[in-house]
Design a binder for these strands. Sequence first.
RNA 1: GCCGAAGUGGUGGAACUGGUAGACACGCACGCUUGAGGGGCGUGUGACUUAACCGUCGUGCGAGUUCGAUUCUCGCCUUCGGCACCA
Length: 850
Amino acid sequence: MEERYDPIAIELAWQKSWNDSNKFSVSEQSEKEKFYLLEMFPYPSGRIHMGHVRNYSIGDVVARFKRLQGFNVLHPMGWDAFGMPAENAAIQHGIHPAKWTVDNIANMRIQLKRMGLSYDWDREFATCDVDYYKWEQQIFLKMFEKGLAYKKSSTVNWCPECQTVLANEQVEDDACWRCSTPVIDKELDQWFFKITEYAEELLDYTDKLPGWPESVLTMQRNWIGRSIGCEIEFPLENTLEKIKVFTTRQDTLYGATFMSLAPEHPKALELTTDDCRADVEAFIAKVRSQDKKKRTSEDYEKEGVFTGAYCINPVTRRKMPIFLANFVLMDYGTGAVMAVPTHDQRDFEFANKYDLDMVVVIQPKDQLLDPKSMTEAWTGGGLMINSDRFDGQENEAAKEGIADYLATEGIGDKTVNYRIRDWGVSRQRYWGNPIPVMYCDQCGVVPVPEKDLPVVLPTDVEFTGEGGSPLEKHKEFYSVTCPQCGQAARRETDTFDTFVESSWYFARYACPDFASGPIDRAAAEYWLPVDQYIGGVEHAVMHLLYARFFTKVMRDLGLMNVDEPFTNLLTQGMVCKETQSCAEHGWLYPEEVVDGKCVKCDQPATIGRTEKMSKSKMNVVDPDHLIAKYGADTARLFSLFAAPPEKDLEWNEQSVEGCYRFLNRVWRAVYDSHALISSHPEVETEGEARKLRRITHRTIKKVTEDIDGRFHFNTAISAVMELVNAIYVFEAKDKYPGALCEALETVVKLLAPFVPHITEELWLSMGNTSDLETVGWPTYDEKALVEDENLIVIQVNGKVRAKIMVSATADKATVEAAVLADEIIVRQIADKTVRKVIVVPGKLVNVVVG
RNA sequence: GCCGAAGUGGUGGAACUGGUAGACACGCACGCUUGAGGGGCGUGUGACUUAACCGUCGUGCGAGUUCGAUUCUCGCCUUCGGCACCA
């Protein structure tokens, strides 16, 4: 055995061995129970970053732990390989996106292998492989057939920088989620997936995912945004037509005194009277010219215009003027709102501005509302008044009855409305999966026949950087003949949002080579769902919601048989580091600051706030350097030890040093006792050996419980550190080599999922022949845990005053007597009366005096 | 405004169903080892007070429940994340 720990040499040797033997390759042919562990696959940007290191270290601990526990573990890796950066590289550096992507993947694969992650590399694929994306095209065709994919013209979120459309989820603070350019409105013909059809199921199942963090479920519930209410029809005055509104406040129907329509409402111009037409048209034009995002922000002034038309409140028969209002949205509910100024703040402001009627219909308990003196709408609860048969009822309780009444009268129906919109998937980009349809003057939208799939993305395209997709200029691609009528037709040049690929890749990992469909049912049956999914919380809504949606769609298409893709979800926190900047040169990389000064100008550098590592803030650390300096085991250990997985991790070089030091300490502990333990002496159970064994087995218990399901890797590691400390101070090494050997072997076994290289190496050097995976995860001996004596904490009136050792077999009375006889306690209670003595067996005694 | 998460030493963090607050680690100090440096090994390290023991205070703030509260309840403050003119 080498005296010195040489991480690089050890790691390269073990990685070669794992690679050569396809060590972590799995199949369905196994006696063992399956466990599917998945980490979110990376975009091949070129280099891994600390976020990847953390994500994949966490995943690898779970994968290796489950494997050691005897599970058949599927742990795959691949590449989310379509996307804009590849195209930007083509424009900026003249490298073809395909080459750029392939090169990046090759590089990142080396980096991941260098981390010693236990992937089944046989299952690796990139989403830009034709063998992957062609099946996505097939899924699309089936969705199209079922009406789950459809085309419509709509105002879309357009990013002028990326020259493409964004889904609502991809807009953050009115800006592109990727490049932060402000998003503008654009009217475009787009493909949509009908995620709204699954809104209810997606929402209902948020209650059936106990393995998900509550915060993620809440975000998804908010995003789906279900509201239960009524659709109510208001007849127009003088015609037979009606206008339908959606409301969640049918309890205020008797107070509805006017109506507000969205400016885009189809009936807006139709019902406008001649003398109001000029004003209405001007208003519509004005609203159209305004930015939609600005217009729909809360502080924007409420404005409207009278149409000259009236409708009738169906329960009060009151004549209600119809307005157009800028705050009414066409794409929520019905685009029409019954206005109740007394009980809705927006309507209240609007009514004041245009001097409209107000009627109070809900009277709160502790004040009397009068429209003349109200300064704001009353949106709380109370008793209903001015509401005919419902007078005197509690408004919340009456909602159900009102809905029923409206239904029987044929005025309205109970309905459910969702905030979520259909998912726009068209992107005006080249480096993506072509949407397999064409346009024929005769036949309209024609799906590419399944037998003609795949629609292969051509590689001979030109990148001008002038915007628009190069596919639009690629005649061989877009010029096609219609399969239905044989006439010339034009192929769709838009490609799919790359979130489509990541919506089903987890299922393809079960059968990456399956050649007769997207998913091999038998393989999917065995492996799915994913037992544990791990990734960043930034995907809480987008990716995770789309993947859930796709799973349900694939189920309904008969492709597989699961309702939810991910049984358990772990969302890990970000990797952060302090930012540094200099007055002259702005943000600085860590290596550009030496002795607190900017290397470019020698001015002192300012330390800014700690933020998520990002290239733009330059507060990044390159994992390659870390691994080259300390090895992969140290890099892994640091990212697991410094914080629990779900919290943010603050980068600290000194803490990395500490982890490296610990591994050296472990190495030395084994090295120092090498001669003593090489014969694997029998474990002694008496005297000091018994004490060491107690610590050894207690550690096994703690580490097992900390990893399994709790993911408290930091405390698991600290428990092993304590065991190592105990070995160092264990003085009877020569006397009890058996107990020592057991302790050292336990350290190695328990650390195996965290730092796989050093542990395999130490295991071998201890004279073992089979590898750690064959040996399996250690179990603890209950008998070894038994304490002879317990430390009893003694409190007087809840304050700790003394501690004594008491035999573990002592009964309550004995303990109490021992406590009351204790010198310190006698002094503490000398001049007081003992009122009560509380004994917590084996732990604590509280003497209450007064 | 609504919803969710969090607030503990100089620092990262621990304390699982109410029972020794600060495990483990970083940093710092001291000692041993070494020719020295590095490294290693060990001891100490919440604050105040003290020579030391003792003592007092202490988990964002304020109340409450309890023999006992970082943990439970109520009210507030701060930070982060999500939603927000959604009828």
